[in-house]
Structures are given as structure tokens and as C-alpha cells.
């Protein structure tokens, strides 16, 4: 418990740094917010008017102070592109991204870990080659390409999948609920019809993302398994006459999981922010596309809010991974 608090306290300087750097970075970016939002027929006066109303005419330290004070009240500012408070938008959109990313990650783990283990156990076999091909393809095919390809084949040509219209089809009503995860909210509400609708919407984008996440997980599982399988305690276990599956799953896999879990954390946080293109193709109302739209329009507040949210998530995620590592590996517990 003390360790957890200590770790959290250690994150505070990082977050302060993030706040400062994002603030400065968004100001350094070329692009004139006021001119952009003044509209096509803006006169110099109306641009100045907008600048004043947004506080953009103030000196930078004053702007920063205002930002910090607002942040202290939990106010992330207003987005100009969507016209809504940034906090509401992030709260609404984060679950969408998180749900998609989690589904993709679970799918990826379900395929990549067994694939990696098999590839390591049967090194040089056909499974190993399949693992290599899948990993290479997953990394080298850009997500928007796989996304469009999946849409083209499974929606456009075959018609097996529903229209890529976002989280729910146009006629379904979103479930009332608190988590914002439609798959969980619908089940809590006992609405199996909407659950199926939400599930069918998430399949294609989750597959697209999973394909991308497969590679690092499969490769790291394979490498880590190979190292462990070659170690002395596995040889001892084999020599003691333990069965193949017991050696591989109970002894080797557990020890090989440590780097895999670390990579999982990285892949998750990476996917959460980087699935912009998947969100675009599938009209997924997630946080990545929100931030990119804002960036293109030089809309400061959402960009700052996005980076801050991601930083906080990253800190929490790393903490979670560390705790998980301790659970898996007794040595990690002792060294702390």
C-alpha cells in the first residue's frame, strides 16, 4: 500500500511537466485559432474580438495561470470545434476508445499468446512460420488499410457485418448506464438485443486493431518463452519426468509472462491513443479522432486535455502493470 502511494507521488512531477509542456507546445504550433474560427468573411476587428473573448491576446504567463486555475477546478476548457466543454467530451469519448481497445487487446492476447508459445515450443515448425507471417503482416499493414479491407469484404461484399456507423446502428438507442462501456451497460440493463447490436458493431474495428497489436505480443511471447525453455529449471523439470504440457504451461509460461505483461501495458496505452485511423474508418466516437480534429483546427483546450488524460492513464497503467508483475513474480515483491 505504501509502495502504491509512493509510486503515485512519484508521478506528480511527471504530470506537472506534461501540463507545462503541452501548454507551451500548443502555443508554439503555427496556426491562428482566432482567424480559423472567425469564419470566411472575418474582418480584422472580428478576429481581434474573438482573440479577446478567448483570452488569446493576454501574455503567455497570464494564459498559463488561468489554465492552471481552471485545471484546479477540474475545468479543462471549451473545445471550439465541437463547442462543448472538453471534460464532458473526454468523459463521453474515453469509454468508447477504452472499450474498443480492451476488446482488441483481449482478442490479440487470445491469439498472440498461444501462437507465441506454440512457435517457441515448435521452433522452426509451420506454426513458427505462421507466427512470423502474422506478426510481420500485422505490423506492416497500416491499420486504415486493414480496416477498409475488412469493411470492404465483410460489410460491402459479403454483408455479414453491420454498417460501420459507429458504436450502434442508427435505430438503436444507447443503453442507460454508468460505465460508458456499451457491452457492459447493455448486459447490466438486461438488454440482449442492444448488446448484440453493440457487439456486432465492435467486431470489425476490434479485429483491425487486434491484428495490429498481435505482432508485438506474439513476438515477445515467443522470445521470452524461448529464453525460459532454454533455462536450467526447465531442463530440471523435464529431467524430473514432468509431462510436456505441465512444463510448458506451469513452469515456463508463468516465468515467461513477465516481459509479456510489460509489453501489454505499452501496447494498451499505445493503442488507446493511436487508433485514430480505426476510429475514422469505423466512425467510432473515440478520443483519438477527437484530439486529431482539434489539433488540425489549432483548438488548444482539447489537445491539452487529451495529452493530460493520456498521461494520467499512462501513470495508472504503469502502476497496474507493476502490481501485476509483483503478483506474477515473487522476486519483484521482495526487491521493492
Amino acid at each position: 500500500m505504501r509502495a502504491v502511494l509512493f509510486r503515485l507521488a512519484g508521478a506528480i512531477p511527471t504530470l506537472c511537466g506534461v501540463v507545462l509542456v503541452t501548454f507551451l507546445l500548443t502555443r508554439v504550433l503555427p496556426g491562428d485559432t482566432a482567424t480559423y474560427f472567425a469564419g470566411p468573411t472575418a474582418s480584422a476587428e472580428s478576429i481581434a474580438q474573438i482573440k479577446a473573448s478567448l483570452g488569446l491576446d493576454l501574455p503567455l504567463p497570464v494564459q498559463f495561470w488561468r489554465y492552471i486555475v481552471a485545471l484546479g477546478h477540474g475545468d479543462l476548457g471549451m473545445s471550439l470545434t465541437t463547442g462543448q466543454p472538453v471534460r464532458t467530451e473526454i468523459v463521453n469519448r474515453l469509454p468508447a476508445s477504452a472499450e474498443l481497445t480492451l476488446c482488441a487487446l483481449i482478442l490479440a492476447i487470445g491469439i498472440a499468446v498461444p501462437l507465441g508459445v506454440l512457435a517457441a515450443v515448435r521452433q522452426g515448425s509451420i506454426v513458427d512460420h505462421i507466427c512470423r507471417v502474422v506478426a510481420t503482416a500485422g505490423v506492416s499493414l497500416p491499420v486504415f488499410f486493414t480496416g477498409l479491407l475488412l469493411v470492404y469484404v465483410f460489410y460491402f461484399l459479403l454483408g455479414w457485418m453491420p454498417a460501420p456507423l459507429g458504436r450502434l446502428d442508427a435505430f438503436a438507442t444507447p443503453p442507460p448506464g454508468k460505465t460508458g462501456f456499451f457491452l457492459i451497460d447493455t448486459l447490466l440493463a438486461g438488454d440482449t438485443e442492444t448488446f448484440r447490436a453493440a457487439l456486432s458493431q465492435i467486431v470489425l474495428p476490434a479485429c483491425t486493431l487486434a491484428l495490429f497489436a498481435l505482432a508485438p505480443i506474439a513476438r515477445i511471447t515467443r522470445a521470452s518463452m524461448l529464453a525460459v525453455l532454454g533455462s536450467e529449471f526447465v531442463r530440471t523439470a523435464r529431467a524430473s519426468g514432468l509431462s510436456g504440457p505441465t512444463v510448458v504451461l506451469t513452469y515456463a509460461l508463468r516465468n515467461a509472462l513477465l516481459p509479456v505483461v510489460t509489453v501489454l501495458g505499452m501496447v494498451f496505452s499505445f493503442l488507446l491513443g493511436a487508433n485514430v485511423l480505426v476510429e475514422k474508418v469505423f466512425a467510432w466516437p473515440g478520443i483519438g479522432s477527437y484530439a486529431v480534429e482539434a489539433l488540425i483546427a489549432s483548438d488548444y483546450a482539447p489537445v491539452q486535455g487529451f495529452v493530460l488524460t493520456m498521461a494520467i492513464l499512462y501513470v495508472l497503467l504503469n502502476l497496474g502493470i507493476d502490481l501485476l508483475n509483483r503478483a506474477i513474480d515473487p522476486r519483484a515483491r521482495r526487491s521493492a
Partner: peptide
């Protein structure tokens, strides 16, 4: 009227061609 924001033009085209929009 349900107006959906679909950022990708390819998706918008697929939707109209398939008859979902």
C-alpha cells in the same frame, strides 16, 4: 432525421452503396 458524422469518405460511400444510408 438521423445525421451521423462519418469521417472516412470511403465509409460514407460504402454506406450509400449498400443502402444503409
Amino acid at each position: 432525421v438521423i445525421a451521423r458524422d462519418i469521417p472516412s469518405p470511403s465509409t460514407r460511400r460504402a454506406l450509400i452503396e449498400r443502402g444503409d444510408a
